[in-house]
Design a protein around this nucleic acid. Sequence first.
RNA 1: GGACGGGUGGGUGAGUGGCUAAAACCAGCAGACUGUAAAUCUGCCGCUCCUUGCGGGCUACGGAGGUUCGAAUCCUCCCCCGUCCA
Length: 378
Amino acid sequence: MNFSFEVVNTDPTGARRGRLATPHGTIETPVFMPVGTAATVKGMTQEALEELGANILLANTYHLYLRPGHELVRKLGGLHRFMSWPRAILTDSGGYQVFSLADLRKITDEGVRFRSHLDGSEQLLTPEKAVEIQLALGSDIAMVLDECIETPAPRDKAEAAVRRTTQWARRARHHFLEFATRNGNLGQRQFGIVQGATFSDLRRESARQVAELDFPGYAVGGLAVGEPHAMTCEMTGEVTAFLPRDRPRYLMGVGRPEQLADYVALGIDMMDCVLPTRAARHACLYTSEGRVLIKNARYAQDQQPIDPACACSVCRRYTRAYLRHLFAAGELTAAILATHHNVHFYLDIMRQIREAIEFGNLGKFSSEMHARYAAGPV
RNA sequence: GGACGGGUGGGUGAGUGGCUAAAACCAGCAGACUGUAAAUCUGCCGCUCCUUGCGGGCUACGGAGGUUCGAAUCCUCCCCCGUCCA
């Protein structure tokens, strides 16, 4: 199956209903991609993800490079076969680790030197290396290595990150096209990434520069890393206006349940976030009425499901009281059930968003979500 | 009956004269989490008062007395627990 993207519908807000075809299946967009950094969505099996209708997962270049190693994965038939995931995979480049492992790395124009958090060994990740690792993994979509910085950031730092991100994108693009031609590529596509922190002009400039490299898809990076939601939206809007309409747009690392529709309304087609899975492991459950902090004493005798309006298998079978007990007891099943529910909830939000775009009432959906989540934990 | 060892905040358990309302861990309560170094991290955790502060008062280290400016810490007696000897 060839890689292609088509916008099948738009609504007045600027939201797009689309279809992204990959070698591992066609994805209805806007889409939310559960994060499976180390070739697993923590707390979930691949069969469960398939049942929930996840059509694309995220995995991480840097983490899989360190362990088990991209060459091993290649030898074992690529990431899809290795982890037995027949649907699409997008691999992040390690750019986020530039941000999150700030105290363990050093950036130069050449690339990023990491001190491995696993064994302390020094590792060099370059734009070219990130390309090669991802080709070995065989993901459907490979991200270029970028420099992700915190927000708010000083102007000069943001400028430097944009300059380097563009420079790296150029190198990554060339290397990808050349290396793939020489060594074979089973249909992987490469996405560019826009940076620019919270500066509108830098965001626009970054978008313009990266778009020149003619990627089949574009990501907006470096957002939701400290700035307020309104700023995230403002910057996203600045960028999407400058990206080609016929290519998928991926807003990296977002968001909270009530924020997803906002990004979609700004023309975003793809999102990913660790929040549903991480929060689940930390006993934070997302529901149609807001967040449920299931460890709270108030749920000790609550015989309702997590979310009475939810159709997931966990809500059909287990009570809040039982979930609370599992968390209190430190049982692994707590994380498994909570993760299942939250991922279902996120994927269901996306289903509703896609439907809302078709019916032209995405704005209404968005304001309802915000209203329900405004009050804090239920 | 005797010899040792020991009794500390909900639990385990540090502390052997003032820096101790008393370490640490657990439990409990609450919160955070946005391209995952996260089954993690943070705060509170004797009672009480207020002008919420490195604030005041009270109570507290088995019990009762005592020494001392000052005691969970030293002394005396008593109670209880454990081990061993009769």
